[in-house]
């Protein structure tokens, strides 16, 4: 089977072609212009991951929401569950960028962190 993956590591957006064997193994990988592309396409085929960026509610801040992110990518299939989990969260201002909002988020071994300073309003 032939599988096409658009590399998203950098704006060059290489079109990588993978030849996939019967046991889902990669037989060949072409079209990448650097090693990062190879790593990305391999990962994208075997266990795709995404960084989640969203917001959580904040009490007493200059804005009602605090932007947050996972500090590492999480499995693509976990995005919905992660969104439902962040919808339950509320933090108190002030917050500093990098503050861990949830440690070991959803037991995925990643942290949910604040992505800006948010002063009291």
């Amino acid at each position: 089977m032939i599988k096409h993956i658009t590399c998203t590591v950098c704006p060059l957006s290489c079109e990588i072609t993978l030849e996939i064997g019967e046991n889902n193994e990669i037989i060949s990988l072409t079209g990448n212009r650097c090693n990062r592309g190879k790593v990305y396409a391999t990962k994208e085929h075997t266990a795709p991951e995404r960084t989640l960026t969203t917001t959580v509610r904040v009490r007493g801040g200059v804005h009602p929401l605090l932007p947050v992110r996972t500090d590492q990518p999480i499995p693509k299939g976990k995005l919905k569950e992660a969104m439902l989990a962040t919808a339950q969260l509320e933090v108190e201002a002030p917050v500093k960028m990098g503050t861990v909002i949830v440690e070991n988020f959803l037991d995925l071994g990643v942290n949910l962190v604040a992505s800006r300073d948010l002063e009291r309003g």
């Binding site: 960084t51 960026t53 969203t54 932007p67 992110r69 960028m97 992505s115 800006r116």
Partner: peptide, 25 residues
């Protein structure tokens, strides 16, 4: 940048995928 909460900023400058607010901060 404060409303661009998605990541992908700063790949060239910081060699990291920052969110908009992080880049601004």
């Amino acid at each position: 940048l404060q409303q661009c909460i998605h990541h992908g900023f700063g790949l060239h400058r910081f060699k990291a995928e920052l969110t908009g607010p992080e880049y601004a901060q």
